[in-house]
């Protein structure tokens, strides 16, 4: 069957390609691969092993956060407001700093990791309660929570900490060209894909996204499901924080939040939309790889940091524009 498909595919590729592109997720994968190959043609050194490892490792860490963000964007809408979690970066940052304090307090690695994940869940629960019980729009609720988290983090001091072996392995280790962080993400990616596609939970989240009132009439507890997405996102952000800690080794106070907006951009570039139940977990992978690839790609141009920012902005704009125009033309034809 597969073989047959392959033969027909190569034979009729010119005819098959347009219909293939009509599928959003396929189009995203093709655009990202095309962009990476194109930039490889311009700057062949981007395929250096050290660069590939770096991109995949950072993509893995961002990916863990982006999976949570995906669930929120898909199912975190409340009343008329779309779902979004602006607190993920602050949660991640807080966990990297708080880890050392908690370890000193409980004297156990495993317990510390559990507490960190619980903190993430608690942050998500607070988000969820403010949104569903307080009827505050997700944008504002998670923004406020992220302000508070930053305040808490800055009041903590940095303590020198012995990071457990397996966290270092998760954050910094690799098998051949594949960083463990990326493999770890791929496992979670598969789990999330199954959950969102085949379990009642995932199907209800999609139902809630495409038709909230209909879902409510069919017995979906909207408040519960909305809040649950923020809890998932909080846990994933905390997990991202643990991975990031294993990568950083020495947590620092100078933290630039490259997770909140990048995770949202990755999910949106992956073809997910804020309303209407449109999008798939599958889009998260090319989204995060693209977002991290450009960070490394612009490093190869020997230009100052300032110019690199501008290039990043223009590249994201160009690729997103090509993707949007392409899918618009496909829809029209």
């Amino acid at each position: 069957m597969n073989l047959r498909k392959n033969i027909t595919l190569s034979k009729y590729l010119p005819e098959v390609l347009p219909s293939l592109l009509k599928n959003r997720t396929t189009a995203v994968y093709l655009s990202v691969v095309a962009f990476i190959l194109l930039s490889g043609a311009v700057v062949p050194t981007v395929f250096m092993p050290s660069n590939v490892i770096g991109v995949l490792r950072q993509a893995g860490i961002l990916g863990v956060v982006a999976l949570g963000q995906f669930v929120v964007i898909m199912g975190g809408a409340w009343r008329r407001d779309v779902g979004i979690d602006l607190s993920v970066g602050s949660t991640l940052f807080m966990i990297t700093i708080a880890f050392g304090h908690i370890v000193k307090w409980v004297h156990s690695d495993i317990l510390t990791i559990l507490i960190c994940l619980l903190i993430g869940a608690a942050v998500g629960l607070i988000n969820g309660l403010i949104i569903t019980k307080g009827n505050v729009s997700p944008f504002i609720a998670t923004l406020a929570v992220s302000l508070a988290e930053q305040g808490i983090t800055w009041t903590l001091s940095i303590t020198p900490v012995e990071i457990p072996e397996y966290l270092l392995y998760l954050g910094s280790g690799r098998i051949g060209l594949l960083p463990i962080a990326f493999l770890f993400f791929l496992v979670l990616f598969a789990i999330f894909w199954v959950i969102m596609k085949y379990t009642t939970y995932g199907i209800r989240i999609y139902a809630k996204s495409s038709n909230p009132q209909g879902a409510r009439l069919l017995g979906v507890n909207l408040a519960l499901y909305t809040a649950s997405t923020y809890v998932i996102s909080g846990v994933m952000a905390a997990l991202g924080g643990l991975l990031y800690l294993g990568f950083l080794v020495h947590p620092a106070m100078r933290f630039i939040d490259i997770f909140t907006f990048d995770s949202i951009a990755a999910v949106l570039l992956g073809g997910t939309e804020f309303v209407g139940g449109i999008g798939s977990v599958l889009g998260v992978l090319p989204g995060v790889v693209f977002m991290r690839f450009i960070y490394y790609f612009v490093l190869f141009f020997r230009v100052p940091e300032a110019t690199r920012r501008i290039m990043q902005g223009l590249i994201i704009f160009a690729v997103a524009a090509v993707f949007v125009l392409q899918s618009r033309r496909m829809r029209a034809s």
Binding site: F261, A306, Q312, L325
Partner: peptide, 27 residues
């Protein structure tokens, strides 16, 4: 231009201009 003419999500296009303005300021 990005949000209306191209049809990008406002989040994406203003993230780009955020990076661009930041880069210009740093330059």
């Amino acid at each position: 231009f990005g949000a209306v003419k191209v049809g990008l999500h406002p989040f994406i296009v203003t993230l780009c201009s955020f990076l661009i303005a930041q880069g210009l300021a740093l330059t």
